[in-house]
Amino acid sequence: MLEARGLPTVTIGLVRLHLEAVKPPRSVFTPFQLGRPLGEPDEAAFQRRVLVQALALLERRDGPVILEDFPDDAPGASDQRGWTPPLVSAAADPATPEVWAAALAREMALLRPAWERARTRRRRTTVGVSGQPPEAWPNFMAAFLAGGLPTVPAHETSALALRFLIDDLKAFYGEAAQANGPAPSSGQIDRWFWRQTVAARFIITLREACLHADNNALRTVAGRFFVPVPYLPA
């Protein structure tokens, strides 16, 4: 679209099939995980290689269509043996919304120092789309589990408020898991989060409850946007 408007473009693409179908004028296929077009976080030299290969296509005159392959896998795609997952609660699933909220609050308190360290170390956090502080999350989630539809000023609907709160919760845990030591693979973080934490069990429990809610938006959001496909209950 932009090339037709006079702007030279180059695309970094994670799905070769789509590059072959769409035929952008210049593109580099990078064989990395979805969500990581530059390959590897905290690996400036690797990111630079990807970027330079892509930008170099702007000097080619033999298009359209130019499609190159980046030759290497991302260095951090494999699991990191030296990574130790943060300690979380191993208690049985709570029976009531109030007890779920208390269990999540306890687990978040355990992880809070690691999250704060990560925030200090990186001078940033990706937590923030919910419009609510972490202290408010457990009770807000519990209110939905109890059948309520609470709202916050930051979002137009209850469904969106809950969706983005769950994004923040996952980001909080993801950042805490990467606070110390060697960086885990994304798969390690996901397996830890979805199989070991109270937070994930709460999200999955809440999803089940929301799927039976009267509110159509809540049913849609819960069904599609709470849990990644590999971790959906059977």
Partner: peptide, 21 residues
């Protein structure tokens, strides 16, 4: 921050380093 609708791509890389995205 990121508010993409999909939950089926990795965000842990972005959490560590904005440059990966």
């Amino acid at each position: 921050v990121m508010s993409h609708v999909s939950v089926n791509f990795d965000r842990h890389g972005f959490q560590r380093d904005v440059n990966v995205v």
